[in-house]
Design a protein around this nucleic acid. Structure first.
Lengths: 334, 334
DNA sequence: CTGAAAGCGCTTACAG
DNA sequence: CTGAAAGCGCTTACAG
């Protein structure tokens, strides 16, 4: 058996209260007893039991993170940022893979509550009413990352997706493109779907380019759907010089499909993506795309959450800067 | 305040013992009291406190997973497999990003112990003596994934790296290549470095090809190092028709570098990688590589660990099958 | 500066 | 079938 605080108290001839005080750096003991206790702790190899401590403190120093798909590069970059900040601030992180399926999310929320988690980060998932009220009733603070909510007590950290999409589209326009297709993300997705499409729309509009819905296709952010979308786009008769894809995977799918049709990127068609995956810069040609600082977003989300946990105060949301990564898949056609 | 077991006991006019029995599906109560208690639980929205339970049970239903770099696709695929199996078996997973740095690992081990974690999975890290003895003294079971150990009480799950490297090299040889370079992983890495190099060596030997150390370069598994290695290989005067890289990133680096030198893959040079990253199949040309079932490996590791936790018995190691993913970067030169 | 004791929210013999 | 009580390993007023 591992020794308990009682064991060290006994061995050091003091009370458990004293040991506890020393362990927690409180006041109320002489330097001499401190030395003695520290030494016995060392001798016995004593390690405090965080579970027992949590039962008193009502704090577990643990946060939960919900991802729709932990294995994606997107999620894992965010997780990295979260874990790092959390660790530096003495918190642990419990990962929860929710899949697409909402039932699992609710089950997880209940589990996290039972485990007395101090707070929750929702990654790239919308905060449904039922999730919110579950969290609310358990008084668990929550922050959103790569997602958004109107609730004043739920801060979020994300890029301005509409603006980013606007910038990507404008980037094409400024290089002389006017026949620009979009491979949009999942229809109805409020964050990465609709918003990016709106940015595309607005950019066209602001530059006097008429919108043509024949130039828009919807995918699900994954490679296959990018191929499909491009295949379909390549069948229309209207001219087409550039494509804005709402994810790098779809952009890569589009490139693949274009090359299957004997078209060269960027000579015959320009393509810009969205995500800046690690491998996107390694492609030949390297993919021009929109970068969002996922790591940093994770860090900020963790920071917000821990602040909420520790101060109990509301925390503001953050919009973090995106950037266009200029690489080799967009041609200047002016 | 959330209601406690006492609150529901009081409201239902029974003892906390009875409520506890019902909660835990033990025997010893009438169907009538069960109904009443269940109803009050429902009414009050009671949820048990897992921390309090853990303090009694000496079980937290939580496992810790240590990764050198959570944000890599490698780690996140394994994590996905672990999390899934754990969740299905009522365990949660705490992620720990250890970086390259060993001090952090030891700190984490201590933290996990304090948090009374039930078991630990080490991912692609060697189990140093100091880690082992820390775990040992705390009586925490451990399993290794994508790593290996000689200790009988530490099961592992991995691919046969030497054989996989052998197969990759043989794959090239069977297609007529005899001037085969290798871009090896980190020198001295006992799992992904040395072992894969040995597989390469043995394959050459078994097919009567003389080993030439001028054809071997060492990288660190990352893209940049693959570029470097290839650049250096392209300077030697000896003929060279194929390259086996110990990671997909290095393989992609090699392809990039080759194309910078005006060489076409696979026409001028064949390349085979190792990892089967998600994006490797999306490249043009798609990368021929060695696949290891990371997801499955994670699942098996979690299964082993939970078995150890719950039965206290030793569990055997597993070697899982790898596979050559035949794609487009290797040319038949016979 | 120090200790006895109550309490955190559960589980589990033990007794009836 | 049911309950009173001890105990899990800590923290924290309270009293001295």
């Amino acid at each position: 058996m591992n020794p308990t605080i009682r064991d060290v108290a006994k061995r050091a001839n003091v009370s458990v209260a004293t040991v506890s005080r020393i362990l927690n750096n409180l006041t109320g003991y002489s330097d001499k007893t401190k030395q003695k206790v520290l030494q016995t702790i060392e001798e016995m190899g004593y390690q405090p039991n965080a579970i027992a401590r949590s039962l008193n403190n009502k704090r577990t120093q643990t946060i939960g993170v919900l991802f729709p798909l932990v294995s994606s590069e997107f999620s894992s970059e965010i997780l990295y940022g979260i874990e790092n900040y959390a660790h530096d601030n003495n918190y642990s992180v419990l990962v929860c893979n929710t899949e697409i399926d909402g039932t699992r999310t609710l089950k997880y929320l209940q589990l996290l509550r039972e485990k007395q988690i101090d707070g929750v980060i929702f990654a790239s998932e919308t905060l449904k009413d039922e999730y919110y009220s579950a969290l609310q009733s358990a008084q668990i603070p929550v922050v959103l990352v790569a997602s958004q909510s109107e609730r004043p007590d739920v801060p979020y950290v994300k890029v301005d997706d509409k603006q980013a999409a606007y910038d990507a589209t404008r980037y094409l326009i400024e290089r002389g493109h006017r026949d620009i297709a979009m491979i949009s993300g999942t229809k109805g997705d409020p964050i990465a779907g609709t918003t990016r499409f709106e940015g595309y729309l607005l950019a066209l509009h602001d530059h006097g380019i008429e919108y043509d819905d024949e130039l828009v296709r919807y995918g699900d952010f994954l490679y296959e759907s990018g191929c499909e979308a491009m295949k379909s786009l390549l069948q229309i008769k209207r001219p087409l010089t550039a494509v804005f894809a709402a994810s790098d995977e779809m952009a890569i799918g589009a490139i693949t499909e274009a090359s299957r049709h004997g078209m060269r990127v960027p000579d015959d068609i320009s393509i810009i993506g969205y995500d800046n995956l690690r491998l996107s810069s390694m492609l030949i040609p390297a993919l021009t795309t929109v970068h969002q600082p996922l790591n940093e977003m994770g860090r900020i989300a963790a920071e917000k959450l821990i602040t909420m946990v520790e101060t109990g105060e509301a925390v503001p949301s953050s919009i973090v800067p995106h950037a266009i990564m200029e690489r080799q898949t967009v041609k200047n056609v002016i």
